[in-house]
Every structure is written in C-alpha cells, then in structure tokens.
C-alpha cells in the first residue's frame, strides 16, 4: 500500500492520541496524588478553570459546576488543614481511556481502591476503606490536558475493622444542609447489603468529537 498523505495524516493522529493517552494518565495521577496529599492548588491547576462548564461531582455531595463552585469546594475539602492521623490514599487502576478523533477532548474511567483514616475529636484515628471509580472528561491545553468534568462514584466507604457488608454508616452523607454551591447529584449507588451493582460509570467508547457528559451514565451496555 502506497504511503500517501492520507496515511501520513492517520499516523500523525495515532501518534497524537498516544501522546494524549500517556499525558492524561500522568495528569490524573498528579490530581489524585494532590488529593491524597491535601494540596488544593495542585488539584485546581489541573482543572479547566477557564471553562464556564468545568465541574466536579463527588459521591452524594452534589455537582459543583463552574469555576467558582469547583474552586470553592476543592479549597474547602482538599485544602482544609489536615489533622494529625488523617489520611486519604486513593489509587488509580483499570484505565479505560478514549481520545476523540478530533483530539479536542478525551474520556476516561479508572477504578480506585483506596484507604483512609478519619479523626474525630481526641480519639485515635479510625481506619477506613475508600473505594470508588473516577469518570473524567479532559480537554487539551497545549502539550498537556486538564480535567473538564470529574465524577467520583463511591463504591465502598466503611470502617476497616467491620468491612463493607457490616458497616454502611459512611456510604451516604450526613443529614446536614447541602453545600450552597452544589446542584443535585446525578448518580449515587455505593455498595451495601441491599444495593444492586450497575455497570456505571460506563466505559468510554471510541468517538469522533465531544457530544456531552452523558456517556458516564449510559446504561446501554451494547454500545
């Protein structure tokens, strides 16, 4: 088969996709490390804060949409002064990543085993499991990529000594007012003895150009 400009263009696109694939994984690794290390500024510098539709959804805490809401919630949570003995240790596994054919966006899912330690008043820290899934849209910024929409789906949150079938006390948020900048959650189905698993977030599939955030909750398993 002759080496044509069309073939060269296809190879150039493939190379650009491969570079994006690597950079996106590095960027998300940096985001998660910054969450774990309580570095709000390092999280925020990897969000597309120049986009009015940038968003962050975390478990059942609601959707934080827009630069002000994202910045506020990251500063108030990740950026809160940590207490001695506190720990968050999220990890990224099972990457499923698609870069749009037009190289204008990318979609990714990771499964995230995790552990943590919570501190209440003067008691010893309590070890907990924190497992979940990340579904993320990315946008290109020069030679790197930034988070456009991030949705963390809680899977397990329980006391380590009891385990996920015996402790459901942490899977849902406390009955306190929602954050004034939050909008209603789009999906929350953590593991519990009565829950039924859905295949969500859905795996991103090859796509030509961005057509919205709906892929994360797409229940059509045939696509």
């Amino acid at each position: 088969m002759a080496v044509t400009d069309e073939r060269r263009a296809r190879l150039a696109t493939k190379l650009n996709k491969l570079r994006a694939y690597q950079e996106i994984q590095n960027q998300m690794g940096r985001v998660v490390a910054a969450i774990n290390f309580r570095q709000a500024d390092k999280v925020l510098e990897r969000f597309a804060l120049d986009r009015p539709d940038v968003s962050l959804e975390w478990a059942d805490e609601g959707v934080f949409s827009g630069p002000e809401a994202v910045t506020t919630i990251v500063r108030e949570t990740v950026g809160r002064d940590p207490l001695p003995g506190e720990m968050v240790d999220l990890q990224l596994t099972t990457p499923i990543i698609e870069v749009a054919d037009d190289l204008g966006s990318a979609r990714a899912v990771w499964w995230s085993p995790g552990a943590g330690a919570t501190v209440e008043e003067s008691q010893d820290p309590e070890a907990i499991w924190l497992w979940g899934m990340f579904a993320v849209d990315f946008l290109p910024y020069g030679d790197t990529w930034k988070v456009w929409h991030l949705h963390y789906f809680r899977y397990i949150k329980c006391r380590y000594d009891k385990g996920w079938t015996d402790d459901t006390s942490l899977i849902n948020r406390l009955n306190v007012p929602m954050h004034p900048l939050s909008k209603p959650s789009t999906y929350h189905n953590p593991y519990s003895p009565l829950s039924i698993r859905d295949g969500l977030p859905a795996a991103p599939r090859p796509y030509a150009t961005d057509d919205g955030i709906g892929w994360m909750l797409d229940r059509d398993k045939t696509r």
Partner: peptide, 22 residues
C-alpha cells in the same frame, strides 16, 4: 486491550442476567 479488559471488569461487576451487552 487494556480498555477491553476494563470493560470486561465492569460487566463482571454488573451481573444482571439477560441484558444485551457489547
């Protein structure tokens, strides 16, 4: 191939019988 096995892991967790799947 990594994407494929990730998708398979999702289907493994979702055990609904009779669903049409890719």
């Amino acid at each position: 191939v990594k994407n494929l096995r990730g998708q398979a892991a999702i289907f493994h967790d979702d055990q609904h019988l009779g669903d049409q799947r890719r």
